[in-house]
Design a protein around this nucleic acid. Structure first.
Lengths: 211, 211
DNA sequence: GTCTATAAAGAGATAGAC
DNA sequence: GTCTATCTCTTTATAGAC
């Protein structure tokens, strides 16, 4: 009786495979977020991941495959803060909580923010479908929620989509333009975000308070 | 008597020189603003400028020299909108006018905005001095103006530096994230900025109105 | 799974003719 | 001032030994 030997392509990943793929994705995020797709090299990523270039290419067949993988992995969690905006919640409190979550993402994972910024600035060639598809759909859904709040007199009348743009822009600014923020404030990134929190609460909650 | 023959290095630029340098700088802005420094190639810029690579390198000795030239040329006008904020003006009106000027820059020259975004995202290696020098000085100066308005009770109390960040972030967003904005709104860039104008007036003026 | 060696293409920059 | 040809270095990707 022969031993059970599944097709290698279907076999679950080994521990070492998982670890190396993770190391590569982390290294790729580091490099791609700083230099964009075309400005990054496999060599830099391999170096950052602590392995040789051919070894890296054993796990991912090409530079673009690495890029897509890190972009997908990051995209996955990117929309969560907005998804969690609760139609049943208190409007101003929901806005405040959303601001918090976005600001925390700029604090905890500024590289993800910069990765997207780079991708979108160059025209988002690899994620246009997500933008016109999943993103637009989610924005439409939440815009309707916000419009409902406005119609109920629980929020001052504003354009909900431009409101979301403003929240994205102001919170992601602390990740994407980190060095500029630090230069102007002579403060580290964490302190800058601490300061931003109070300011953004004031800005948005004052403007959105009904009546 | 010999004819007057000035040192060629000191001679004024010919018409063809000026025209070609201008064509190169415009092409360089187009390419660098989309792909960043490392992601851009001299070949692409030459093609965009309608000349051969060696011919382009006749006018600029290296890729970095072109990049510095286009960055300097753009930096030059970048801070003008803030410089024009008038301490003697009516505070809310000065804020509104500043918003207008910044939005118009996103409309008229989105490439300049993206050029800086790319540069700052990668850590601003070539303009750190401008950031900690000229930019910080100008921000300090205008922050003092804003604080004066607040102290006089003519503006609601907010952190002036974070206020400037918020104005930069929200207005430049329409240039830097143009494709995302268009995807979400299903509108062209001009229409998006038209809509942004009303929203941003509401957001900032409501939040900043004293009392 | 990881390495050295290398093929092949891309990209920065120069030489030299016109 | 502009071109073709080319040198050189970088970078992507593969071959094949271990």
């Amino acid at each position: 009786m022969t031993e059970f030997a599944p097709d290698p392509a279907l076999r679950a990943k080994t521990r070492i495979q998982r670890e190396n793929e993770e190391k590569i994705l982390d290294a790729a995020l580091e490099v791609f977020s700083a230099e964009g797709f075309r400005g990054s090299t496999i060599d830099r990523i391999a170096q950052e991941a602590g392995m040789s270039k051919p070894n890296l290419l054993y796990y991912f067949r090409s530079k673009e495959e690495i890029y897509r993988a890190v972009l997908d992995a990051t995209l996955d969690g990117w929309l969560d803060p907005l998804r969690r905006m609760d139609p049943a919640g208190e409007p101003l409190e929901e806005i405040r909580a959303y601001l918090r979550r976005k600001l925390e993402m700029s604090r905890e994972n500024p590289r993800a923010s910069r990765l997207f910024a780079n991708e979108v600035i160059r025209g988002a060639p690899l994620i246009v479908e997500e933008l016109t598809g999943a993103l637009k759909a989610l924005v439409d859904e939440k815009a309707a929620v916000i419009e409902g709040w406005i119609a109920a007199g629980r929020l001052a009348p504003v354009d909900p989509r431009h409101l979301l743009f403003a929240i994205w822009a102001t919170t992601q600014h602390y990740a994407d333009f980190q060095v500029q923020v630090q230069a102007v404030l002579s403060a580290d990134a964490g302190a800058a975000i601490d300061g931003a929190q109070g300011f953004l609460d004031t800005l948005f909650l004052r403007a959105l308070a009904p009546g």
